[in-house]
Each structure stands twice: as structure tokens, then as C-alpha cells.
């Protein structure tokens, strides 16, 4: 499907690379050497075969194998996504739990409304505002996410804080809202009442009985957010000039570099599938009612 999408894009590849003033014979020669003048099905077969063997094709623009670019970019994106995730998971869940324990009090209102407002804003808007505050006015954080070559772990982390914040904000709203509604439901349940009535301390009730049940739906949501996170990465990596998979796809799309574009999108598809699988697995581990292999 991705391959077809890429091929349907009109525009002569050779023409796009050589520019509008190139000689037609040169364009034809280039098209031939790239193999784009062969029939579609032949191209498709070759592409799938090579991809399965780890060869993702040759970039039209860089005239070099695609794989190293994609692998580099994927690594960079994972760093960024990981920083955002590691920040947002505990804070988002904590926010939702605090909101639920203070249901309908001012603290709940602030967390719920604040979370909702930042969630609906486009990432580049929160990104720009955060850059202005922390990068331009306070000068605490660097405004571009490209660290000096050979930088250590903490330097890299320092450069990644600002780009991960807009992603953090968008995810925070979702995760906090899910955790909040899960908590409210669990707090309202019979087993919580039983636990309270048998005289357990409130702290134990919350930790042992409420949290466990409340966090299950949250985990499912987090998995569905991976797809979103990838969409967000495209924007954030462009804004911060970060060499990740998002900006790779963006540049490839602009330059009609189809092998690069297809490899990039297919990689994202694989990452998404793996993330969904991990979430399913986690869900079954945490939920004793669903054990792998036991159902049906």
C-alpha cells in the first residue's frame, strides 16, 4: 500500500532530481539507471524482495543506500520519543490520580482543564511558545536539537528536553484524563468499598486495590498514542531541525525521494505494530483475567 502510494505520486523522478532545465536524454538515462522506467509490478516485486533482505533501496537524491539513513533517523526519533514518554508516563498518571482523588475540587479542575487545553493545541504552537519562553527569553535551553558531535548522554538529554516538551504536553492531557476516569470508576466500585469497610488504611486501599484496576485502560490508551506520537514527531523534528524519522519522511516527501519515503513510512508502520503488540502483552500481564492462551 505504501509502495503504491509512493508510485501514484505523479512527477517524473529524473526530472525532479535534475531540475527543469536538464536535457531530456539525461533525464531518461537517469530514470533508466534508477530503474523507475520498468513496469510497476516488477519494481514492486524487487522492492519487497530487497526489503525483506534488509536492503531498503537506494535514495534518489543522495544516490546512496537508504538503510543507514533510516536506521540513524529511527534511533534519533526513539531517543526523542523515549524522553517524552519517560517524562509523561509518571507525571500524566500522577496528574490523573491526584485529580481523581480531589474530584470536583479546584485542583481537579485545574488539572483537567489545563490538560485538555494543552492537548488540543498543535505541537508546533506549543513548541514555538516554549522555545520563546525557555530558549529566547530565559535562555535556559538550546533552541535547536542538534548537539555537538560525540556529546555524552547528559548533553544529549539537555538538548532533547525542549523538543520533547510539546509531545509531553499533548500526551499529558490524554493520559491524565484516562487515569482520572479509570480512578473514578475504581474508587466507586464495590471492591473499594469492601476494602475500606474491612478497615484497611486509605493508603493501602488506593495503592493495592484502586490503582491496579485504574491503570489498565490507561495502558491501552498509551499504545494507541504511539501512532499519534509518530505524527507529532514529524512536526516537532521539523520545528527543531532534528534528524529523526519524521523529518526524514518530510524531506523525502518534498524531494520526491520515493525509496526513502517508502522505507520511512514502512519503518513507522512496523514500529506502530510492535508498540501495539507490546501494549497487548503488558495488558495481559497486568490483568489476571486475561492470560495469554487461556482465552477461548
Amino acid at each position: 500500500m505504501v509502495f503504491l502510494g509512493g508510485q501514484v505520486l505523479p512527477g517524473n523522478v529524473g526530472r525532479a532530481i535534475l531540475g527543469p532545465f536538464a536535457d531530456q536524454r539525461a533525464v531518461d538515462a537517469l530514470n533508466h539507471s534508477l530503474g523507475v522506467d520498468r513496469p510497476l509490478l516488477v519494481q514492486y516485486g524487487t522492492w519487497i524482495w530487497n526489503f525483506l533482505h534488509g536492503d531498503m533501496g537506494t535514495s534518489y537524491i543522495f544516490r546512496a543506500p537508504v538503510a543507514p539513513f533510516v536506521i540513524d533517523a529511527l534511533g534519533n526519533s526513539m531517543k526523542l520519543g523515549l524522553v517524552a514518554f519517560v517524562l509523561v508516563m509518571p507525571i500524566g498518571i500522577l496528574g490523573g490520580v491526584i485529580a481523581a482523588l480531589n474530584l470536583n475540587r479546584p485542583l481537579d479542575r485545574i488539572i483537567s482543564l489545563g490538560g485538555l487545553s494543552v492537548t488540543v493545541l498543535p505541537e508546533f504552537v506549543t513548541g514555538i511558545i516554549l522555545i520563546l519562553i525557555f530558549g529566547v527569553w530565559l535562555r535556559w535551553l538550546p533552541i535547536a536539537a542538534t548537539w555537538p558531535k560525540g556529546a555524552g548522554f547528559f548533553t544529549q538529554l539537555y538538548y532533547l528536553i525542549l523538543p520533547s516538551l510539546p509531545l509531553f504536553l499533548v500526551l499529558f492531557g490524554y493520559i491524565a484524563r484516562m487515569a482520572r476516569s479509570g480512578m473514578i470508576e475504581a474508587l466507586d466500585s464495590d471492591y473499594t468499598r469492601t476494602a475500606v469497610l474491612k478497615g484497611l488504611p486509605w493508603r493501602t486501599v488506593v495503592w493495592r486495590h484502586v490503582l491496579r484496576n485504574a491503570l489498565l485502560p490507561t495502558i491501552t490508551v498509551i499504545a494507541t498514542q504511539t501512532g499519534y506520537l509518530i505524527g507529532g514527531l514529524v512536526v516537532i523534528e521539523t520545528l527543531f531541525r532534528y534528524q529523526g524519522i519524521g523529518s526524514l519522511i518530510f524531506t523525502a516527501a518534498r524531494g520526491k525521494d520515493f525509496p526513502m519515503l517508502e522505507a520511512g513510512i514502512l519503518t513507522i508502520g512496523i514500529v506502530y505494530a510492535v508498540a501495539t503488540l507490546i501494549a497487548d502483552f503488558l495488558y495481559s500481564v497486568l490483568n489476571p483475567r486475561i492470560r495469554l492462551g487461556a482465552e477461548q
Binding site: 502510494g5 505523479p10 499519534y228 505524527g231 519522511i249 513507522i268
Partner: peptide, 15 residues
């Protein structure tokens, strides 16, 4: 619905 809108849009608009 599993594909992010930004990605669909990016492909379609390039096309």
C-alpha cells in the same frame, strides 16, 4: 484511522 492524519496528508498532498 491507524495511520496518523499528518502522514496521510503528507502523501496525498505530495501526490
Amino acid at each position: 484511522m491507524a495511520i496518523p492524519v499528518v502522514i496521510i496528508a503528507l502523501l496525498a498532498i505530495v501526490a
